[in-house]
Design a binder for these strands. Structure first.
Lengths: 205, 205
DNA sequence: GTCTATATTTGGATAGAC
DNA sequence: GTCTATCCAAATATAGAC
């Protein structure tokens, strides 16, 4: 095993390009990041970039690819089990969201998402499908199970999910913006928990 | 009166530049909009642009200027009066938000805001101050008054405002993105109303 | 795989004629 | 105020030597 994994070590230039690009795209967006700047940060010439990627667009799409990969770790069985715990389900979900918000890598990715949201249709679709629909689905299942067990008041699970998710997104947005300007986020650091508390008070039976 | 207002009619080129720029900036962002493209859309040469504006930056700042002007029309007296009506206050607020969402001009402005949110510190600050804080202030006053009059359950008015506002923002974001791709928003058109309904159920005494 | 050199395009901005 | 012509810088991309 370790033989095979080591065979292709070095140069690793391609990985380095990807890593650097990730950082630059997330900071300056697509248009604001030049191949020149990428090459310079990697420590090679622009022309050398084209040995690894066909063009700038290809680099960006590779960067964007894992932008939406696996945010939450719920499988079907887990949702039912977790939802039976009521508030703890919401808390777990919110804490996973909080973790992403403050995670260096995901923070970068979230910035790319925001920058490209209005400039790239693929990104918009991924946002709707992976970011929104996927989370709404998980939450709806959870709320539906809670309603069946009269842990919470009866209502439309989709609406309830929408309400719960939208605030999480907004908190994340605010925190991301503030951290971008190195503004302290201590005043918002407990906002996720407050959201769960408020929301549970709003829906519990 | 009509004499004075007519004196400077035509060419109106400067206004046309502004109008075209607004559309282009909102669609392609600052970097994605070239002076060439602006001039071409206006129907003049690039050089002619510089008879009206010093440079591209000046055009953009002019466009950005009225981005945050007067979203909501509440004065202090009105808030108290309106808040006493409970749910109607929230409904009025949400409907004003809905109006902005579907208004052509404000839709353009909102797109510029999103595009520049991560690329322009001034925009971020304006977003926090004008967009967020201002609305939180109005809502907090409203909720506080409702609590005093036991129209709603007792809670932190700031948190409550945050919860109410964040969903409005998220709905607006989604609708804006969908309209950008000419996707029908009928499924979301009543989301504002549903939000008010759900929220009122969550807080009413 | 990386380099130098270069082709090509695009974009911001100015000079001077009309 | 607008035009043509032009300049300059930056950026994408390619060719060919090492």
């Amino acid at each position: 095993m370790s033989d095979n994994t080591m065979v292709h070590k070095r140069t690793g230039t391609k990985e380095k390009i990807l890593k650097v690009s990730k950082a630059l795209f997330s900071e300056y967006g697509y248009k604001g990041t030049s191949v020149r700047k990428i090459a310079s940060n990697v420590g090679i010439r622009e022309s050398a970039i084209y040995n690894h990627y066909m063009n700038k667009e290809e680099i960006f799409l590779e960067v964007a690819k894992d932008m939406f990969s696996s945010p939450f770790s719920f499988n079907d069985g887990e949702i039912r089990e977790s939802a039976m715990k009521g508030k703890a389900f919401l808390h777990k979900f919110a804490m996973q969201y909080k973790l992403l918000t403050f995670d260096k890598y995901n923070e970068s990715m979230f910035r790319i998402l925001l920058i490209e949201l209005l400039q790239n249709k693929d990104i918009r679709e991924q946002f709707m499908n992976e970011f929104h629909n996927k989370n709404i689905k998980v939450l709806s299942e959870g709320f539906f199970i809670m309603m069946q067990n009269t842990l919470i008041r009866s209502s439309d699970p989709m609406i309830m999910s929408y309400e719960f998710l939208s605030t999480l997104f907004y908190i994340r947005l605010q925190i991301t913006l503030m951290r971008y300007d190195s503004i302290s986020t201590t005043s918002l650091s407990t906002q996720f928990e407050k959201h769960v508390d408020f929301f549970w008070e709003s829906i519990k039976s």
